[in-house]
Amino acid sequence: MNAPATLLTPTSLADRDQRLLDTARHGDLDAFEALVRRHQRRVYSLAWHAVRDQMLAEEIAQDVFMQLHAALGRIESAAHLGAWLRRTTTHRVIDTLRARKASRSLEDIAEPQVGHGAGDPLAERLVHRALQRLAPRARLIVMLRYMDDLAPTEIADTLDMSLNTVKSHLRRGLTVMRARLQREAVR
Rank of each mutant, 00 (worst) to 15 (best):
T6N: 12
L8K: 09
S12H: 08
A14Q: 10
L21T: 02
D22E: 14
R25D: 05
D30C: 06
D30N: 12
F32Q: 03
E33Q: 14
R38P: 03
H39L: 10
S45F: 07
L46S: 07
A47P: 06
A47K: 01
W48H: 13
A50T: 00
V51A: 05
Q54A: 15
M55Q: 15
L56R: 15
A57C: 07
A57Y: 01
E58W: 07
M66R: 11
M66N: 06
L72Y: 01
L72T: 07
R74K: 13
R74H: 12
I75N: 02
A78E: 12
A78T: 06
G82M: 04
A83C: 10
L85R: 02
R86M: 12
T88M: 03
H91Y: 11
R92V: 05
I94R: 05
A102Y: 06
D108C: 05
I109S: 11
I109N: 10
V114K: 10
G115D: 08
G117K: 02
A118Q: 11
V127T: 12
A130S: 15
A130Q: 04
A138R: 02
R139W: 05
Y146S: 06
M147Q: 14
M147W: 13
D148S: 10
L150E: 08
L150S: 06
A151C: 04
E154L: 07
S162W: 00
S162I: 02
S162F: 00
K167I: 01
L170Q: 05
L170N: 02
R171T: 04
L174R: 15
T175L: 10
V176G: 06
E184P: 03
V186M: 11
V186W: 07
V186H: 11
R187Q: 14
